[in-house]
Design a protein around this nucleic acid. Structure first.
Length: 493
RNA sequence: GGGCCGGUAGCUCAACGGUAGAGCAACGGACUUUUAAUCCGUUGGUUGUGGGUUCGAGCCCCACCCGGCCCA
């Protein structure tokens, strides 16, 4: 969709009004305005302010405008809410009132000053004795009743969406509250927030293809990070025993309802903790965030009631797949065996290249969609987890868990591998997978290995997708809605 | 990548292959307590883009662009 010609009929009408103000010596874009209250504060303290006959000064966007002959109502919206203002010849004088009538449009930003009163119909209002143009809107707002519906335009021109759709404002506000609650939770437990490089000469820490860019000064390719893991672990080695980062990561993959090429990750690492400790932290953190942001641990996601009250049950991945598909993958040690079992069980999954990937497929088709209440799945195949520590006595299962609820993956964590020689072998294994055509395999990171050789404390690590968590807590079905400016294809210019 | 659906006025939406319309917004007028104010009048269109079929295309056909839903 085009935005329409830049100077259409509606814009020209508004420009004419701007010109009229200029001719009258009015600056339509003054540098500041001395507010005494925001709209919410006026409503909160209304009785007292009214009785004291105090003069208030509020400011906001004109979202409703009802003009009668010699009086008018203008509703002002600011970040806190909205408030009705009443303008009349009696209180403004003929000149200021006429200027209001002739130059103010829906969408303009206005300041209004005067005492408070309640209208006949009971609406708390400002009796305006002086009004000020704070910014003339040269383009018309979207339709006042239906708002802006067109999904494409809502996302391409998010400012219009935010102006006209309270729901969108609420989502972004609550997203910020979620992030704030997470920080509060981690900070209170002594975690230190870090910032690690976005531009990296090697990409690692997750199975994903990177974005590549060019650094002119050094004339070499660099990658946008696909995870936070390998640098946070360096900090852990350096002695920051509890460390986390909330940051944007980039994965060169498809767009979908649940995938955005750039998204926000939380990763945390805690020395001398293991994945059991991290499980306890995750259930307290997510339920605590829900309580802090929504005031409750009982939420509804896609029409299903979800109770986040800890503790959350634990189940091994093997047991979960067995219960929901009848297949015990531990009884089928090779890809061929497992494929046979899948066929026998009549489960419809895409063919995979490796046994571990097939197990992963069974998880996403049979188990994930069936999970409603929060659940920790534990003990994953080694092959899917090149940075996780083996379970003591096991050769193929690592100390890893993922948390699920309402069919959504909420967290991924493990007891971190801290044996540099074992880590070296994992990298070599990944290199073999890369040679076999796996574009998402880890690349060997000598610097990281060297750091680990310095001695990395045993640690529990955690990753949470903030966008997914937001979708989950706020019951939003698409990731685009919780990202202020999601990636879209190039529009026409 | 595949299937289905969609793109018409600034916004929300109509229109059997036969004169492109309504509501809101805008413009002019009436109106001093409204709540999507009301009433009267007016303006506003390269129907996503490019081809084709037809006496005639918003509608049918082809290609492309952008989006939605489902699948991969």
């Amino acid at each position: 969709m085009t935005a329409g010609p830049p100077e259409d009929q509606l814009t020209l009408a508004r420009r004419a009004k701007l010109e009229r103000l200029r001719a009258a010596g009015v600056d339509s874009f003054p540098p500041r305005y001395a507010r005494t209250h925001d709209t919410a504060e006026v409503h909160q303290d209304f009785e007292r302010l009214q009785q004291a006959q105090e003069t208030v000064a509020v400011a906001g966007r004109v979202t409703r405008l009802r003009i009668f002959g010699k009086a008018a109502f203008a509703e002002l919206h600011d970040g806190a809410g909205h408030l009705q203002t009443y303008l009349s010849v009696d209180h403004l004088g003929a000149e200021a009132y006429e200027q209001f009538r002739e130059t103010v449009d829906l969408g303009d930003l206005l300041g209004a000053r005067g005492p408070l009163f309640v209208t006949r119909t009971g609406e708390q209002s400002v009796e305006v004795h002086e009004w000020t143009m704070l910014a003339k809107a040269l383009r018309p707002p979207p339709e006042k009743w239906h708002g802006l519906r067109d999904v494409e335009q809502r996302l391409r021109q998010r400012h219009l969406d935010l102006i006209s759709n309270p729901k969108s404002r609420d989502l972004l506000t609550k997203r910020a509250a979620i992030v704030r609650e997470i920080r509060r939770f981690l900070d209170a437990r002594g975690f230190i927030e870090a910032e690690t490089p976005v531009l990296q000469s090697l990409h690692g820490g997750a199975a994903a293809r990177p974005f590549v860019t060019h650094f002119n000064t050094l004339d070499r390719e660099v990658y946008l990070r696909i995870s936070l893991e390998l640098y946070l672990k360096r900090l852990l080695i350096g002695g920051l025993d509890k460390v986390y980062e909330i940051g944007r990561v980039f994965r060169n993959e498809g767009l979908s309802r649940k995938h955005s090429p750039e998204f926000t990750m939380l990763e945390s690492y805690e020395a001398y903790a293991d994945y059991q400790d991290v499980m306890g932290m995750v259930e307290r953190m997510i339920s605590g965030v829900a309580h802090g942001v929504l005031g409750t641990m009982q939420i509804t996601v896609q029409g299903k009631a979800v109770d986040l009250t800890p503790p959350w049950p634990r189940q091994t991945l093997r047991q979960a797949i067995l219960e929901r598909s009848g297949i015990d993958y531990s009884q089928h040690p090779t890809l061929e065996d497992l494929e046979g079992a899948v066929r026998t069980a009549g489960v419809r999954v895409e063919p995979q290249k490796t046994r571990a990937q097939l197990i992963d497929q069974l998880l996403s088709t049979c188990v994930e969609p069936a999970i409603v209440q929060p659940l920790f799945l534990t003990d994953y195949p080694l092959e899917l987890s090149p940075f996780a520590k083996l379970k003591p006595g096991s050769t193929d299962t690592v100390e890893r868990f993922e948390a699920f609820a309402a069919g959504i993956e909420l967290a991924n964590a493990f007891t971190e591998l801290n044996d540099p020689d074992e880590q070296h072998r994992r990298f070599l294994q990944q290199a073999r997978q890369a040679q076999a055509g796996d574009e998402e395999a880890q690349v060997m990171d000598i610097d990281f290995l060297e750091a680990m050789q310095q001695g990395m404390p045993p640690a529990g690590g955690l990753g949470i997708g903030i966008d997914r968590l937001t979708m989950f807590l706020l019951d939003v079905p698409t990731i685009r809605e919780v990202i202020a400016f999601p990636m879209l294809r190039a529009g026409e210019d």
